[in-house]
Structure formats: C-alpha cells, structure tokens
Design a protein around this nucleic acid. Structure first.
Lengths: 204, 204
DNA sequence: AAGAAAAGTTGAACCAATTCTAAAATTGAG
DNA sequence: CTCAATTTTAGAATTGGTTCAACTTTTCTT
C-alpha cells in the first residue's frame, strides 16, 4: 500500500507543483512553458500530462492549496467572531483578501478564474466551484453564529445572505485582480461600505 | 471620405461577424476555427487579424451587440418602473436575463467572461468592463428613480446599492452559464429571493 | 491619366500545448 | 530472482491561433 511507488508519485506531484509555482510567478502563466516546468521538476512532458490533464489543472492545484489555507484561517473567526456584525464580516473577509496574494499573483488569479468559467466541467473547474461553495458556506456559518449570539435577527435567511455577501465580495475581488494598480485597502473599504447596507438590514 | 475603401471595410466587418456568429453557435467557440471563419466570410486569415486583435475580440464584438440591446431595453424600465421596489428590480433584471441567450449560447458567454478576466487590457477586456459598468449604472439609475418617486429611502447610497445588486446578479449569472442544465426561471427566483433582503433594508 | 504613396490583403511559417508511440525502467507478486 | 504489469521517458506528429514579409488595391498628386 504505502510502497515506494506511492512515495515517488507524491514526490513527483510535489516537484511539479513547486516548479510550476516558481515559474508561474517568475514568467506568468502564459510565459511558463510546459517544457520548462517539466525540466525544472525533472520529469518529462509526458509525465506532467499523466499527472494533470492540462496546464490549467496545474494552476488549479496551486489555487486549491491557497484557498484551503484561507478557509482554515477563517474557521477561527467563525468560532469566536468580533462582537459586532460589521466587524465580524470585515474580519472574515479581511482574512480572505489579505491572504489572497501570498502564493498567487494577480495574473495567476486571472488565469485561474478564466479557466474555471471556461471549462466548468474539467477537474479544476469543478474543484473551483466547490471552493467557492465552501467560502459561501463559511460566510453563512458566520451569520448563523452571529444569530446564535443574538447579533443578527433570527428571522433572516442566513444562507441567502451569505450567498449575497460572498457573491458581492467575489465580484469585487475579480475586478481587483483585473486591475494591476488596484490596492487591497481600497478593496476592503469598498466591500465594507457595501456590507454596511446589509448589516443595517440584518442586525438586531 | 466615404469612398470605396470605407464601404469595403464595413462590409468585411459585417461578413466576419456574421460568419463568426454562425460558426460559434454551430460548432462552439473552440470548434469554430479561424480558418473556417475566414473561409465563410470570404476573407483571408490575415485580414481577420487586421480587423480583430485575436479570436476573443471577434466574440467580444458579438457580446457588445447583445449587451447594448439589453441596455436599451432596460431604459424603459428605468423611465417608468413598477410601483414597488421588489418588482422594479425584478423587472429590470428580468430583461437582462431573458434576453441573455438570444444571440449568445451559454458556451459563448463562458468564453466571453473567461477572456475578459484573462485579458482585461485587450480591446474586448476593456469593452466588457465598460459594459459591466453601464449595467451597474443602469441599476443605480433605477434606484435613484425609485428614490425620486419616494419608494426608496432618500438617505441610502444609491450607487453602492446598485453595485451590490449588480455584483450579486452577475455572479449568479456566471454560475448559471457554467451549468448547462440551469434554467432561467430558477435563476430569476434565486435573485429575487436575495434581493428581498436588500429591499427590506432600503424600502421606505 | 500616370505614377507614387498609403492602406489593406494574403497565406505560408512559427510557436506552444497536447497527443501519440515505442522503448526503457521500476515495482510487487510469487 | 524473475516476470508481468504499470509508469516514465524522449521525441515526433498534430493542431490551431498568431505573425509577418511580399503582393494588391485604392487613393492621392500633379
């Protein structure tokens, strides 16, 4: 079961991801040729296509790592949120946004988003949709937590509001990565301003 | 000024768009080879690239036609909206959604959206961003109109709410075109449900 | 109306992702 | 230890978007 073959496979996966991460950041997604990734990972082109269906799936694997890290970081906020609806949302969303450029450049985000809408049924396309759903659910979980605490009216539909907040945030993030000169603080401020309207509607 | 050259140019533009529209619908975006579009339009490959920077820009020109039509149709609603905030939003958004598949298939939308995030600085990328902005402004204009009429509180920030509504709608539309089996009535119902939360917050 | 300049057209060549092939290497079972 | 099954490898072939240098057509000038 846990033979040499397993270990080598895992090792090749890691080498490919490491090489691709480095090259995507250095040369951009388009600029990172499969041939170069293969060389840097010390595998052949054929092996890369044995592990990933296409170039986009390699980027997809990197995006998954990033988003899962962010989801993990978010759990703490959901468990014990700030005692104020606006701050609670801002804190959670802040974590998402502040972490977003740790591993992925804006250009990598653009490519990842593009591929996920272009090929929604590819492995990566489906994974990306699942990640969006997980983020939406985490926001909904925060709303539910705030309802428990008594900071949010108990008669509002938490999942619907969570979806609304996620959709708006995600669209703002898309516009953010589309403009290289856009800055994180302004993005956060704009989202906070938008969420204020909602907070007014759902706060007790 | 209005010489032969002008007429030929306009004619070639039209032939290319007509050929591309037909082939995109028949064979899908990927399936429509530039060579085939050129043949059907009775021009050479080189000429196509003289008129459009790349394949995506051809699709872009088609998308622009569609969205501008929708913007036109929306003007009527803004001018004399239904006497109820929820219905007014639903009517405007309904126009956007119901028209959306007239000329463009879901696959064409997916490609168009992907390209606009992938290449935000290409002619089409910029045009698409401008179209999004126009739609956002039209929703904001509707909110402003409803404030005039006295159906929406005058102390809320119209443009912010318009942006929020557009962003949510757009994201829902993206998910809609990503799933071939998704149906228009359900999309509209989901958006209406989400907007109810906002309507509660901004209505008088 | 001729010749030159400007603008536009053409398709063959280029490039990088992906697929395919046959040979070589590695592993696990018996 | 040996063999069969599975993987990896190198590289050639394929494919389709994009580029470019040579050729045409249109317009302008005189």
């Amino acid at each position: 079961m846990s033979g040499l073959r397993e270990r080598q496979k895992a090792d090749r996966h890691r080498r490919i991801i490491d090489a691709a991460t480095a090259l995507f950041r250095e040369a951009g997604y388009e600029g990172a040729k499969i041939e170069a990734i293969a060389a840097q990972a010390a595998v052949s082109i054929g092996t890369i296509y044995n592990y990933y269906q296409n170039k986009g799936d390699i980027l997809g694997a990197i995006v998954s790592l990033e988003v899962n890290e962010v989801l993990n970081a978010g759990r703490g906020v959901v468990a014990s949120p700030p005692a104020n609806v606006g701050d609670a949302l801002d804190t959670l969303i802040g974590i998402y946004i502040e972490h977003s450029l740790n591993y992925l450049s804006k250009e990598m985000w653009r490519q990842a988003m593009a591929i996920s809408t272009q090929l929604p049924d590819s492995p990566f396309g489906q994974a990306y949709t699942a990640l969006d759903r997980d983020l939406t659910e985490q926001i909904s979980a925060l709303i539910a937590r705030l309802q428990q605490i008594g900071l949010v009216r108990s008669d509002i539909d938490g999942p619907t509001v969570g979806e609304l907040i996620f959709n708006n945030m995600n669209m703002m993030f898309i516009e953010f990565v589309k403009r290289d000169e856009a800055k994180i603080p302004e993005l956060r401020a704009a989202i906070r301003r938008q969420n204020r309207v909602l907070v007014a509607a759902i706060g007790v």
